[in-house]
Nucleic acid binder design. Structure first.
Length: 551
RNA sequence: GCGCCUGUAGCUCAGUAGGAUAGAGCAACGGCCUUCUAAGCCGUGUGUCCGGGGUUCGAAUCCCUGCAGGCGCGCCA
């Protein structure tokens, strides 16, 4: 338990006990602790008196007075209790609290910030899952940054986390991919060809066809079309998947597993899923197709599972995949990170889970809003059809993984964000990632120059200046930030918190000298900034952003 | 037409499971380096929280409704 939680629990206990003495029994959950906006009110406040007002038919201020009279703060982190406003009871913390926070950071070090709300639970985080018919593009870059950091946050929150990439290496898109490659292949040899409708038009298709010809002596020109397409598609998929793996690896993402859609077919899991769906009784045949009665589960329309050409639609292997995640592999929770354009698909997949008797709350879908790229103050237009797009590799090459990962996580996934390429490369102060890294580098430099003995006695009660206290207060919140982020599946709090920590440090730096005459004070302050460094380092590692010691 | 997301300062965004006087950064202006990294700090101004109703001690936050933008509503994925 964090020191912050300890202090909160004390406040809850003190309040509940005091209320009990008034002859009213309330549960601890009913006591709601808040942080007052105005610092002069103290660190925490409780609105219990106001809540009890109607029940006791008394003035909230009078109730607050009665409560406060019954509070005994001895032996706690509380220094002072006050009443203000409409009946808020305000608590101030004592120096022991601040000392213990710094000590706690020292003890836990690289584990400081962890919490255990997910202890004993497993979670599968599936993200990016870009189509292997082309490179990882910029839209996936946001999902990659968010998915990876979300996985890391959950891991810090105590979950056992498994990162997965779902490779769509089967089905319609792969057919089109093969047909597109075939056309380019034939074109290259001056043969007659027809380019498929809705085919892939990017330059990379030509490159793949060219490379195939270069690496394979055996010509496909006279092979049957079916074989030719299959050969080219398999070759292209292998290439593309390797490229995606490299690009994502440069982006700092390592998956535990690349799950192949094709393996669902190979292992008969798609057929199994169809049987399971049929067994629910919510399927029927119409127009030579197999339908799932999704309307029964609140969807607007029923869904086709198997087309009249006897091939499954996209959702069918996806149902099989989620059965595999939630039943076969028994993950307590599955998180899918998708683009916002898939939102209509969410209720369909969930309704299939419900039909199968799986609690659909175990499936959490994060919908990323789209990213617009801005260059020279103009929106960069991209067209997937024409193959004009900026890839993840382009982005990492242009702005670096640190800036990209930090900025994508800086905004909540629900916001339609603009990514300004010029700004991200500019090492300016408008770029929060540099602000945070700079704080880290600055601390490293100071610590190096102070050379204190590691076993030196330290006295944190010397850390009483306003800037020191403010800094410690913020450091104390780390585990709570992780917890809230994990509960809300929201990564954006963490980079914002990083900026807050950095800012409090810079303010401290400008008003308190670390390397100073008073040796005891110096030792205490070196310890303090070392704990700031620990927190920054831990945050940056969660974000997958480097923590430079020099800048 | 129906559904989901969004609407807060000139710009980009916070606003913690309704709380006290709605906040940061950037941009603008003015200060701070003979001493630990000025990629930094300090100070100054800004609001129809999209509009309109409602719920209550109290609403940017919850409900209803209107407006604007994005996205979806395939036997595509």
């Amino acid at each position: 338990m964090s020191i912050l939680d300890k202090s909160r629990n004390q406040i809850i206990t003190l309040t509940a006990d005091a209320v009990l003495k008034l002859g009213v029994e309330i549960s601890n959950d009913e006591i709601c602790i808040e942080v007052p906006k105005d610092k002069t009110f103290g660190e925490f406040s409780v609105n219990t008196a106001m809540k009890l007002a109607s029940k006791l038919r008394k003035n909230p201020v009078q109730i607050a007075k009665d409560i406060v009279q019954n509070i005994n703060i001895s032996g706690t982190y509380i220094k002072d209790v006050d009443i203000a406003g409409a009946g808020f009871i305000n608590f101030k913390l004592n120096q022991d609290y601040y000392c213990d926070v710094v000590k706690d950071i020292f003890d836990k070090e690289s584990n400081y910030g962890k919490c255990n709300i997910g202890a004993g639970k497993t979670v599968n985080v599936e993200f990016v899952s870009a189509n292997p018919t082309g490179p990882v593009h910029i839209g996936n870059a946001r999902g990659g940054a968010v998915g990876d950091v979300l996985a890391e946050i959950l891991s810090w929150a105590g979950y056992e986390v498994y990162r997965e990439f779902y490779v769509n290496d089967a089905g319609n898109q792969v057919e089109k991919f093969g047909a597109s490659l075939e056309a380019r292949y034939l074109e290259m040899f001056g043969k007659e060809f027809t380019f498929p409708e809705d085919g892939y038009t990017g330059e990379y298709i030509k490159e793949i066809a060219f490379n195939y010809a270069k690496e394979n002596k055996k010509s496909l020109i006279n092979a049957p079309s079916e074989e030719r397409r299959a050969q080219l598609a398999q070759f292209g998929l292998k290439r593309n998947i390797e490229d995606m793996q490299n690009a994502l690896s440069e982006y700092g993402i390592k998956y535990d597993n690349w799950y192949r859609e094709s393996s669902l077919y190979e292992n008969n899991l798609v057929q199994d899923a169809i049987e399971k769906m049929k067994a629910t009784g919510y399927t029927y045949e119409k127009d030579d197709a197999l339908w799932f009665e999704a309307t029964h589960f609140g969807c607007e329309k029923d869904i086709v599972l198997i087309r009249n050409n006897s091939l499954p639609t996209y959702i069918t292997p996806d149902i099989a995949y989620h059965i595999n995640k939630l039943i076969t592999r028994k993950f307590d929770m599955a998180i899918d990170v998708w683009g916002a354009d898939h939102h209509g698909y969410v209720p369909r997949l969930k309704s299939a889970m419900e039909a199968l008797g799986i609690d659909s709350n175990r499936l959490n879908i994060i919908l990323m809003q789209f990213v617009r790229l801005i260059r020279q103050e103009e929106v960069v237009r991209m067209s997937k059809r024409k193959g004009e797009m900026i890839t993840l590799s382009d982005l990492v090459g242009e702005v670096g993984k640190d800036a990209a990962r930090f900025l994508f996580n800086y905004y909540n996934y629900n916001t339609h964000m603009d990514f300004d390429l010029d700004l991200a490369v500019e090492n300016s102060n408008e770029n929060p990632v540099f602000y945070v890294q700079y704080a880290h580098a600055r601390i490293c430099s100071i610590i190096q120059q102070c050379e204190i003995n590691a076993s030196a006695e330290y006295d944190f009660s010397l850390l009483t200046k306003e800037e020191e206290i403010e800094l410690i207060k913020i450091l104390a919140r780390f585990a709570e930030e992780i917890q809230i982020s994990a509960l809300n599946l929201d990564t954006s709090r963490i980079p914002k918190y990083a900026v807050e920590v950095a800012s409090a440090f810079h303010t401290f730096y400008n008003s308190c000298r670390v390397k100073c005459e008073d040796e005891n004070l110096m030792i205490a302050r070196v310890r303090l900034i070392t704990s700031v460094r620990t927190v920054l380092k831990n945050i940056l590692s969660i974000l997958g952003v480097s923590a430079p010691e020099k800048m």
